[in-house]
Design a protein around this nucleic acid. Structure first.
Length: 748
DNA sequence: GCGTTACATATTTTT
DNA sequence: TATGTAACGC
């Protein structure tokens, strides 16, 4: 069977679109990823485009990896390193390192994450003697970021009042500090890359010629720099293929502008526009609910999503007395559905607006003794002990990195306080060096260092620490084994007892350090440089442990691109969803609706919306009114149950027609009420999508990779996906329907 | 310079 | 709540 035969007419049109600009507006569940991957395969197979002539940009590393796997699978070809496939940041990082000669930093620059950025900005604000109440680091960071996303270097920064003038000064200083540290922040990676292509005709020609085809996923979430970059990349051949959905644009606050979709049409008059409206994921009821929500937004291309999966179950709306009961309701319902054999743990996702909401859910899972998987939240890389260890490594790698150095110079405390640091900075300034260089000098020459007398009381601890760093650098240069280096650092600094003391019942901080060591171990052959470079671009999404058959907890943002049989969305209260900060701005409200829309459309079969009358907010109880979004849902799509009427005053009810709420004395009762409907179709409907052909331990045969063993088999996007470990040691994720694997021997 | 404590303060989403 | 900072005493 030809790989193109499985496409519907619209999808086919998109995959085989002629050269030029193409915009595929793809509703949720309409096979967007499939179109993108098959387009790549089509270009390589039928159009004789070579893999290295293709650039494909995704939003996350995970999406990039999946796309690579799928394309390799279809082509039966290893693409590693040939096709330019990755996030904007990864691709730009690669270009910047190659073209560093044109740039104000060298090829081994480090990448500052938002925490690093924040502390740099804080320092600048302090150095400039500004009030950090009027110039809050967070908002300054936002404004600098916004400028960078709009292609403004400090020189281009518009300053028409005092505040802007001051922000400009901070921006300028901040940029200088980054440069001194041989560092760039996230936004810089895109901005410098754009500037490089924009100003340097040779470079633009080089990349423009190379990329015969440029493809982008999640186009609605591109911001100005990203869009301009795409134009640069495709400027020679003009083949830009964008896939997106305005209704799923949820990163406005990061500068994303779904109106790039409109701009795209303006910039490329010959643009071919293709609408994908058939949904292969959800039941019609789910789609109708989604539509009822999104239709409240203006300025969009209207889409009529349709599904041939039947009406399915109604949306369940449940109202709990308080937030603890809300969590219990969700967890108990899931636990019952699993116990009755109607669903498996991995069929569920619980979504919320803010990470803080995960806490009570976690408690409830713990209370029930059930496992769960938490995505995001306190990011692994954001944890103090992890950041500390990374900072040590960064200082060893690049002593010019001031942010990292200042982070760990007194961790664990070693007698280097405020005074010592200001002495250090003073000496650095006078000798026009960085504090890292001064520290290394102190370390190398001890009391003989020219800086030694200037250091006052803290001279000895400074020289000691400097000597440590020198020794670590020598060890690293001798033998680039990251884990050994980490062990030395931990031993020399006494980091283990120090951080163990901080352990509490909740977090085992030392365990996190060990986890980082395990990750470093994987870079043992590639070395410290690559480890640090990749670390910055890896998000937590990328480190999600693979399916362990438990429910998943995550934010509405994090769930984009995923799907589950059963979706719970909690916190449907005004002030939470929509978020309080969005209530007075129509644009923000539209984004909240899109966020809700994204959540709803993740559901294949069942959607449950939950709210709580009372909720603890910053430690004190607050009464909430139901989310106005609930009132968008037409009566006939909804079954609703409330734990009690106690909290519902007439005013609150005004958002939801009274007829829609049924009184239930006990919440347990309401589960029973909802349950039969659930039970009737979940199992059957799930089966209708796809049936698993493989299970773990099956032995399989692949024409290219040979014999392997199935590690696991899961359903994703209505497709069976198996993870196979092949005899040659490689582990691959394969889509059963697309890949030529055969079962050679069932699980014994 | 360090550690404790009291107090304030702000609480979205993250490549 | 939980996190950061300013102030104080050692």
């Amino acid at each position: 069977m030809n790989y193109l035969d499985t496409l519907n007419p619209r999808q086919y049109e998109a995959v085989t679109a002629p050269d030029g600009a193409t915009l595929v507006l793809a509703g949720p569940g309409s096979g967007k990823t499939r179109v993108l991957t098959q387009r790549i395969v089509y270009l390589i197979r039928e159009k004789s485009v070579r893999p290295y002539e293709i650039m494909a940009v995704t939003f996350t590393n995970k999406a990039a990896r999946e796309m690579q796997d799928r394309v390799e699978d279809l082509l039966e070809l290893q693409l590693k390193g040939t096709m330019w496939l990755g996030t904007f940041h990864a691709i730009c990082g690669r270009i910047l390192r190659r073209e560093a000669e044109y740039l104000p930093f060298d090829h081994n620059f480090v990448i500052m994450d938002s925490d690093d950025q924040q502390s740099l900005i804080k320092r600048v604000i302090r150095d400039l003697n500004l009030n950090d109440k009027t110039f809050r680091p967070g908002s300054v960071q936002g404004e600098i970021s916004k400028a960078k996303n709009n292609l403004q270097f400090p020189a281009d920064f518009v300053r028409s009042n005092y505040r802007e003038e001051t922000i400009f000064r901070i921006y300028e200083q901040y940029q200088l500090l980054l440069q001194k540290s041989n560092a760039v922040d996230f936004d810089d990676m895109l901005l410098y890359c754009w500037k490089l292509l924009h100003d340097n005709e040779d470079v633009r020609q080089k990349y423009g010629n190379r990329f015969r085809h440029v493809l982008v996923d999640e186009f609605q979430d591109t911001n100005t720099v990203q869009y301009e970059l795409l134009k640069q990349f495709s400027s020679v051949n003009g083949n830009l293929f964008a896939v997106g959905d305005e209704d799923q644009s949820i990163y406005r606050w990061r500068g994303a502008d779904y109106r790039n979709v409109l701009q795209f049409e303006k910039d490329f008059p010959d643009l071919q526009k293709i609408l994908l409206e058939q949904n292969y994921r959800s039941t019609q009821n789910v789609l109708d609910a989604a539509r009822a929500v999104i239709d409240h937004n203006q300025n969009r291309t209207p889409k009529k999503l349709f599904s041939d999966r039947g009406k399915g179950n109604k949306v369940i709306v449940y109202e709990a007395e308080d937030d603890r009961m809300e969590a219990r309701y969700v967890v108990d319902t899931i636990s019952q559905l699993i116990a009755n054999g109607n669903a498996k743990g991995e069929d569920f996702a619980i979504l919320y607006r803010t990470n803080a909401q995960s806490r009570l859910l976690e408690d409830a899972f713990l209370y029930r003794g059930m496992g769960y998987r938490l995505v995001g939240a306190q990011r692994f890389y954001g944890r103090r002990e992890v950041k500390d260890m990374i900072a040590f490594l960064r200082v060893v790698y690049n002593p010019l990195d001031e942010v990292s150095l200042l982070r760990i110079i007194n961790v664990p405390t070693r007698g280097i306080g405020e005074k010592a640091i200001s002495n250090l900075r003073l000496s650095a300034l006078e000798s026009s060096r960085t504090i890292g260089e001064v520290l290394l000098d102190l370390g190398r020459y001890g009391p003989d260092s020219v800086f030694y007398p200037e250091m006052g009381r803290a001279a000895l601890p400074l020289a000691d620490f400097g000597a440590r760093v020198v020794a670590w650098r020598e060890q690293w240069e001798r033998d680039d084994q990251i884990t050994d280096l980490m062990d030395t650092i931990i031993r020399d600094t006494g980091y283990e007892p120090f951080i163990r003391e901080e352990d509490d019942a909740e977090i085992d901080r030392w365990e996190n350090v060990e986890e980082l060591k395990r990750m470093a171990f994987e870079y043992q052959e590639r070395g410290l440089a690559e480890f640090l470079q990749n670390l910055a671009l890896v998000s937590d999404q990328d480190t999600i442990s693979e399916t362990t058959n438990v429910p998943t907890l995550m934010t509405l943002h994090a769930v984009k691109g995923l799907e589950f049989n059963n979706i719970f969305i909690v916190g449907l209260d005004d002030g939470i969803l929509p978020h309080a900060r969005s209530l007075d701005d129509p644009e923000e409200m539209a984004e909240e609706r899109r966020l809700f829309y994204v959540g709803i459309t993740r559901a294949r079969n069942n959607l449950t919306l939950v709210r709580a009358v009372r909720r603890m907010t910053y430690g004190s109880p607050e009464i909430n009114i139901p989310s106005r979004f609930l009132s968008y849902l037409p009566n006939e799509l909804v079954i609703s149950t409330a734990a009690s009427f106690s909290g519902l005053s007439g005013e609150r009810m005004s958002y939801i027609p009274a007829s829609r709420w049924e009184s239930r004395p006990q919440w347990a009762d309401s589960i029973r009420q909802a349950f039969p409907a659930y039970k009737a179709t979940t199992a059957a409907a799930a089966k209708a999508i796809v049936e698993r052909k493989f299970e773990a331990q099956d032995v399989v045969e692949h024409p290219m990779w040979g014999e392997g063993t199935v590690m696991e088999s899961v359903i994703e996007d209505g497709e069976e996906v198996v993870q196979v470990r092949f005899k040659n040691g490689a582990t691959k994720r394969l889509i059963v329907s697309l890949s030529k694997i055969r079962k050679s021997q069932a699980k014994s």
